[in-house]
Structure formats: C-alpha cells, structure tokens
Design a protein around this nucleic acid. Structure first.
Length: 482
RNA sequence: GACCUCAUCGUCUAGCCAGGUCAGGACACAGGCCUUUCAAGCCUGUAACACGGGUUCAAAUCCCGUUGAGGUCGCCA
C-alpha cells in the first residue's frame, strides 16, 4: 500500500510551491490507490503562526486535495501534529544516546555562534566543532540546558537513492553533528521527519529539492535506528519570472490569493500539475480524474520551472469557457456581493445568467468582469477616451437621436428588433452599421469593446438603454466642440 | 567558500534511459480569416538542443570538462 504525506510547517501561508508538492503527493497516492496523509510539522514554536494551519487546510480543500488521515480527521497513525508526539521523539533520542549514537550537548548558542564565525574567518565549512561529542554529559531530553546531537560518522561516504536523480552521495566528513532534540525539548525537523515517516508507514517522500542535502543526514538516522528509508523523490523547484526563488515580489504567492483573484481551482490544479510534470502527449487540459489516472514518476522533471502566470490565465479562461453558465453565475455572485453589485438575498438569477453567457468567453479570471462588465450593474461613470474621440463626434447626435426615438417606440425589446432599428438608420443616413453601433455601445457601456451590441442591449433592457443614450447625447452636447 | 542539483524556443515541455524524425506540442508574440467592437474560434509564421572536447558511420540523446543557474550549509522547515 502506497502511503505518502504532505508535511507543511504552520509558519507561513502556503504558496504554490508547497501546494504543488502536496498535489504531486496526492496524485501519486490516488494513482496507486494509496493513502495521502496530512501531517503538521509544528515543532518551531518561535515562528508558529496561528492562521497558518487554517490557511493550509483551506488551500488544499479549495484545490480539491483531500487527505485520508490528518490533524482534523485523525487516523490510526496519529497524532498528526508533531507537537503532540514529543514523547515519541524523546524515546528514540534516548535510545540513540544509550547506544552511543547520539549525545547530550550543553554548548550555548553564543559559543556556537563564535565557533561558526571563527570557521568562516578561516574559510572553512561551517560545522559544529563537536566539542561535546566525547564529554559524555548526563542529561535528559527535557533539560533546557542541553540538546541532543547525532554522532555523524567521521569518514567514509553516504549515499541515498533519489527516484528521479539516481544515487546522490555525500562525504561523511562534511556532515555536521546535527541537533535531534532542541533545548526546549522539541525535536528538529531532521529528527522528527525520520521518526514520523517511519512510524506512519510512509512509502514515498515527495518534497522540494531544497531537502536533498538533508536527505543524506536523514539516511544516517535511518541507519542508526535500523530502519529502511522510504523512496525519495526530490522535486524541482518553482521559480519566479526572474528565475529566483518564489517570493512576495512575484505577486500572489499564497494559494488563496489566486482564489481571490478569480482563478478556478480546477484550472489551478491542472496548471500546477503541468509545472514539473508532463503527461507526455499533446493534451494540456486535464481534469482531476485524468491527472490521477495519468500521473507517473517518469513524467516528472528535475529542472526548475518558472511560474508563468500568463499561461495560467489562458488555462483559467479555458475552464471558464467550459463551465455551465449557471455555474459561472454562482462563481461570480460572491464578487458581485463584494463589489456591492447585488445586495441581500434578492437578485434576478435570470439576468445574472444572461450576463454570464454574454461575458463568458471574454473572461480570463472571474474578477475580469469588474472591468469588462460593470455596466450591467452600474451606470458608466465616464466614457473611454479613445472611443470619445472616434465615436462621440457631434455629427453623430442626429443618428443617436433617431435610434433613441425608435427604441422608445419599439413594441418588443428583442435583439432582432433592435438590429432592425440600426438597419433603418443605416438606410436613412446612408452610413455603415458601425457608425451607429459604436456610439451606442460607448453610450450604454462607456467602453468600446464587449459582447455583440444587440445582445448587450437586450440584456440591459429598454429603460437603462434609453436613459444612457439620452445622457450620452447630453454629454456630447456639453463636452464636444463643433 | 564547501557540498549537492540542474541545463531543448521568451515561458511550460516532448524527444534522452534503449544514438539515425524537417527537434513535436502549449502559452506568449506577429500576420491572416471570421466580424458592428472586444473576445472566442480557425489558419499561418518567428523562435531552442549553453559552450568545448571525446566515443561513434551517425550525438539533443552516451562520457569528460567549462560556463551558467538553483539549492543547502540554523536549537527553521
């Protein structure tokens, strides 16, 4: 049985790099009918953030990544918070000390800092000088004046197998006597991860390549405990547009910021899956089920990938276009509320659906409708500048007045009827359709672009159309020179 | 600095492991078609094997080196 885990630390909001790691774990588990486990690595009390756990859970759920065992739902390998597993770590740490494979150390942070600076001055690798290694201090994991350190072999070489990269080796002389238990009694990541992965029966570890260098150290701990390490898969990183590590500078980094910006979880999952993994054929739009079905180790890349938001936007647009109109409306409603376009429980779903249908193929993100479709909900507060120059010339006024009058007397406010009015105007004034259509569009929407004019007007309704055309004529008379 | 990882269009990538294809697809970009505008859709185009050696009849593909990029070197994860 395949068992994989996503093991975030609640020290910050999850960004797309973390989430993609979670996704690959998830896809691999589901592809193999295995279990996906969520474990919270909350052993750093200094950097702990109250809101982080909630953000992690929210982000994963939003994307559609569900776990089989985890902090909120439990499971037979719990607890799934490392902070609740302290006795376990102490037990194994003591065992290692008893067997002479680890030792207590009372070096102060100040001394460590000094040693580090001295080594730096000599241009040596920064490592603990093993001052306590042979002192045989008697202590206890809970004693705040001591830590427990691991006795690294002093010579030789240690290797582990990375599923993607093959054998990776480190010279033991370069490996530090890492801390297993901190002075506050909490384990370090390096220790807890080994204990938990083993005890939780993890079969495969998918994590970022920034963990490659610690994997060598983990191997020693596995060996010391007589355990077999899980299979290791170190994923290539996700980089920003400038090829540097992803950070705040690159815009939205927290996964929920993408949700707020109007990206769809299905599109986000699809896009993230393709960052560092390839289905190896020409298909790019893949549903969650298809991703699970097709996910495989040999499609995984070892090369860092640049996060390209333009492709995400394209893909999101694809998903918006594939969506049922009613579903699109449902997705848009929270934004309409947020912007005050609809209030309370009473709104015209029929109207919203027609707006959705008209705007669907023009949206890349849900929030695009704020710029592109506001006029369905609000009076335009001004007119597009270029549009004014081209379409709001004074000689258009008679044409607009003609259309206005016809509209006022129309017996049936239907697209076909509206179109007929324009045709009549073309004939009467001997001009092309655009000469009438463009000024009317600008008058009712304030924009020079959008859905077909007759569709737009029919949705908007007679009352608003008439009022807006009148207002525009007035505006031209007052603002445009002869 | 030491150690580790990586290297195909601007970007995501297929091809590499089992050498022989005009190096394929997608985003973006440019042009065209459609069209009342904008989108969408369709068609076309520009664009890459980091460099240098070697092995071989033949190298994007195998080997070595160089360069470049990234990562790690915490009582962070």
């Amino acid at each position: 049985m395949v068992r994989v885990r996503f093991a975030p630390s609640p020290t910050g909001l999850p960004h797309i790099g973390n989430i993609r790691t979670a996704l690959f774990n998830y896809l691999f588990a589901k592809h193999n009918n295995g279990k996906f486990i969520l474990r919270i690595e909350d052993t750093d009390r200094e950097r702990y953030r109250e809101d982080a756990l909630d953000a992690i859970i929210k982000g994963l759920k939003w994307l559609g990544i569900n776990w089989d065992e985890g902090p909120d739902i439990g499971g037979e390998y719990g607890p799934y918070f490392q902070s609740r597993r302290i006795e376990i770590y102490h037990k194994y740490a003591k065992k290692l000390v008893d067997e002479g494979k680890a030792y207590y150390c009372d070096c102060s942070p100040e001394r460590l800092k000094r040693v580090r600076e001295e080594m730096r001055a000599k241009k040596l690798n920064f490592m603990y000088d093993r001052h306590c290694r042979k002192r045989n201090i008697k202590s206890d994991p809970t004693d705040p004046s001591t830590v427990i350190r691991f006795k690294m072999p002093l010579s030789g070489e240690t290797c582990f197998d990375d599923v993607l990269r093959g054998k990776i080796c480190f010279d033991n002389s370069t490996q530090d006597d890492i801390i297993l238990i901190k002075s506050d009694g909490f384990p370090t990541y390096n220790f807890a991860v080994v204990i938990d992965d083993h005890l939780m029966g993890i079969t495969h570890i998918f994590r970022g390549e920034e963990f490659i260098s610690s994997a060598g150290k983990h191997k020693h701990i596995y060996d010391a405990l007589g355990w077999e390490p899980p299979k290791m898969v170190h994923l290539a990183m996700i980089l920003g547009k400038d090829r540097s590590k992803l950070s705040k500078r690159h815009g939205a980094t927290s996964i929920m910021e993408f949700a707020e910006q109007g990206f769809l979880p299905e599109a986000m999952m699809n896009f993230l899956a393709l960052l560092g993994w390839s289905p190896k054929d020409d298909r790019e739009i893949l549903s969650k089920d298809e991703l699970v079905e097709r996910f495989s180790l040999d499609g995984l890349s070892t090369k860092p990938a640049v996060f390209d938001i333009e492709k995400l936007e394209w893909m999101n647009g694809e998903y918006i276009r594939m969506m049922e109109v009613e579903k699109l409306t449902e997705n848009l409603i929270p934004y309409y509320r947020k912007w005050g376009w609809i209030n309370g429980e009473k709104y015209d779903v029929e109207y919203l659906n027609r707006v959705s249908a008209a705007m669907q193929e023009r949206l890349k993100k849900l929030t695009d409708i704020k710029e592109l479709g506001f006029y369905f909900f609000q009076e335009p507060s001004g007119y597009d500048e270029k549009g004014v120059r081209k379409q709001f010339k004074r000689d258009r006024i008679p044409w607009m007045k003609f259309v206005l009058e016809k509209f006022e007397n129309l017996d049936n406010w239907r697209e076909e009827k509206l179109e007929k009015v324009i045709a009549e105007g073309m004939e009467k004034f001997g001009v092309g359709a655009g000469k009438l259509i463009h000024p009317i569009r600008l008058a009712v929407s304030g924009l020079t672009r959008g859905p077909g004019l007759f569709e737009l007007l029919e949705i908007l309704g007679r009352e608003k159309t008439i009022a807006r055309i009148k207002r525009a004529i007035n505006w031209i008379e007052n603002n445009v020179e002869e």
